[in-house]
């Protein structure tokens, strides 16, 4: 049992390590789900809708970021605009 106690004492990850690990795993899992099913151009009607676009209102996004970054210690990582319709 002694080796088990020792192992626990030395291998418990810190809060930050857990956070990074969780994010990496989540991202990896989500990336793993990508690209398995191609969407044909004829199937992109819903993807092209404005409510499917990320940050469709650039000024709203900018103002929100402005407020939140002044009320929170973190900043950035809120993504980029556009959507996946590929309409460009």
């Amino acid at each position: 049992m002694a080796w088990q106690s020792s192992s626990k004492a030395t291998n418990i990850p810190s809060g930050r390590t857990k956070l990074i690990l969780a994010c990496v795993l989540a991202t990896g899992f989500l990336f793993g789900a990508c690209g398995k099913q191609a969407v044909r151009a004829s199937e992109k009607e819903f993807l092209a809708d404005r409510i499917m676009q990320f940050d469709a209102d650039g000024q709203e996004t900018s103002a929100d970021e402005h407020i939140l970054s002044n009320r929170e210690g973190s900043a950035g990582g809120r993504g980029t605009g556009g959507g996946g319709c590929g309409c460009n």
Binding site: A33, K44, G76, R78, G79, G84
Partner: peptide, 24 residues
Amino acid sequence: DTTQATVTQNISPSVVAQFGLYGQ
């Protein structure tokens, strides 16, 4: 100095996802 990389991916005809990595 700020950099960001994102991937936007169509998952299905009704699902789109985006993943981003940000550093500053």
